[in-house]
Design a protein around this nucleic acid. Structure first.
Lengths: 214, 214
DNA sequence: CGATTTTTGTACCATATCGCAAATTAATCC
DNA sequence: GGATTAATTTGCGATATGGTACAAAAATCG
C-alpha cells in the first residue's frame, strides 16, 4: 500500500506538520481517473480505487472525499488535461485544415490510450451517463459540450475572416458538425474501431467542413 | 409481485403445461430495458429489475438468464425497436431532406422519452461503455454503428442517383456525418439539452449534407 | 526527549448484491 | 382426482460494497 517510498518530491514544501503522505495526490488522482474512464462510476469500487492508487480507503476518503467527490475531481482533472491539449492547438497560428487535423489527432490520442483497450472520452462514455441523475455532473458535461462547440466556432469564425472559408458558410453550424465528429469518434473508439478508420472519418468530415467536397 | 392478474392475453396459446406465467415476457423485458437505459449495467441491481418487472429474482433468472444476459436481451430489444423505426422511414419514398428530417425526429423521440428525464441512446450511453470489456456487447455495438452508417449511405446513394445531390458528393462521407449527427444528439439529449436546440443542430447538419450551405 | 499533528493501517459495521435451493402454487394431462 | 409440469415465493448464503472508528506510525515543534 505504498506509492512512493522516497520523501516528497516537490521542492516547495511548506514543512507540513504530521506524518508525511505516502502518496502524491496528483498521481493518485490520475490513477483514479484511469479507472473511472475504463469502468465508469458504478462499476468502480472503492477497493478498485484503493489498489489502483496505492492508498487505502481511509486515506482516499480523507484526501478526496467520498466516491462521488472523487469521481467529480477525476472528471475535472480530465477536462483540465483535455482542455489544455486542445487549447494549445488553438493558440498557435496555422491554416484551418491543419488546425482541425491537429485537434482530432490529439482527441484520438486521448481516446485510444489505455493499457487494457481504448478508453474513449470521459464525457461521452461515463459522465453523460451520470448526467441525467446528477445535476452537478450534468452541469460539467454541458459545460464541456458547449465549450467544445465554442472553441470550434471561434476557430471557424477566424478562418472565415481569413478567407479560408466561403462567405456563405456558417461557423456555428460547422462547429456543431466538428463537435459531432469528435463525439462520433469518441463512441467508435470505445467499440475498438481501429485508428485508421477513425482517421478516415475525420478526414471526410474535414473535407466537408472546409468545402472541398460535400 | 404481480404484473397482470388476468389470464394470458395472446389468443395464440399453445396450451402450455404447468403453472401459467404471472408476467408477459415482452412487457417485462421492456421494463428491464427502461431501467438499463436509465442507469446502465452496473448501477442496475437485480432488485431494481425485480421490482420494475414485477418478477422476483428467480423468475427473472429463469426467464432471461443472469444479469448480463438480461442486459444483452434488453439491448437486442432496443435495437430491434430502433431498427424498425428507422427502417419504416427508409422503406417509404420521399425526398432526401424529408427523409433525413423524419429519421432524426424519430431518433429524438427515442432519446428524449422517459419519465425521469431523457434516456438517450442505449448504444451510446451504456452499451458503448460495456463494449470495451465485453466482446459480445462490443460486436452488437459495432453492428449497430455500421448498420446506421450503411443505412445512411444507401439513403445518400439513392438520393444521388435521383439527382438530389451534386455529382461531387460522396455518400459514404455524408453517411458518416449523418451518423455523427445522430451520435451528437444522443449525447446531448442525455445532458438534458432541450429538444429545440437538438433540432437546430439537426437542421444545420442537414443543410450542410444536402449542400444548401457549408 | 516529549507533546502535537497528520497520515496510515487494520478492523469493523451495516447493508447491498448476485445467485440459487427448496418448498409452494397453479395449471394441464390421463 | 392424482400425476406431471412449470412457474412462483420465500429465504438463504457467500461475498462485495461504501463508509468509518481507532490505534499505531511518522513527521515537526518546543
Amino acid at each position: 500500500m505504498v506509492q512512493k517510498s522516497k520523501p516528497p518530491t516537490a521542492a516547495t514544501e511548506p514543512k507540513r506538520r504530521g506524518r508525511p503522505r505516502a502518496y502524491e495526490p496528483d498521481v493518485a488522482l490520475g490513477k483514479a481517473l484511469d479507472l473511472f474512464r475504463k469502468q465508469g462510476f458504478a462499476a468502480t469500487s472503492l477497493d478498485d480505487l484503493s489498489t489502483a492508487t496505492g492508498m487505502n480507503r481511509p486515506s482516499l476518503y480523507g484526501a478526496f472525499g467520498d466516491k462521488r467527490e472523487l469521481y467529480i475531481k477525476s472528471y475535472q482533472r480530465y477536462r483540465d488535461e483535455a482542455g489544455a491539449a486542445i487549447g494549445a492547438v488553438f493558440r498557435e497560428e496555422m491554416p484551418l485544415r491543419q488546425r482541425l487535423e491537429r485537434i482530432y489527432a490529439s482527441a484520438l490520442d486521448i481516446y485510444l490510450s489505455g493499457d487494457s483497450g481504448p478508453r474513449g472520452c470521459f464525457t461521452v462514455v461515463t459522465a453523460a451517463s451520470e448526467a441525467v441523475g446528477d445535476p452537478e455532473i450534468r452541469a460539467m458535461v454541458l459545460d464541456g459540450l458547449t465549450g467544445l462547440d465554442k472553441a470550434f466556432a471561434s476557430c471557424f469564425r477566424r478562418a472565415k475572416e481569413k478567407g479560408e472559408l466561403p462567405e456563405s458558410s456558417d461557423p456555428l453550424v460547422l462547429a456543431q458538425i466538428a463537435s459531432a465528429t469528435v463525439h462520433t469518434i469518441a463512441i467508435r473508439s470505445r467499440a475498438r474501431v481501429p485508428r485508421k478508420e477513425l482517421e478516415a472519418i475525420v478526414k471526410g468530415a474535414i473535407d466537408v467542413m472546409i468545402g472541398a467536397k460535400g
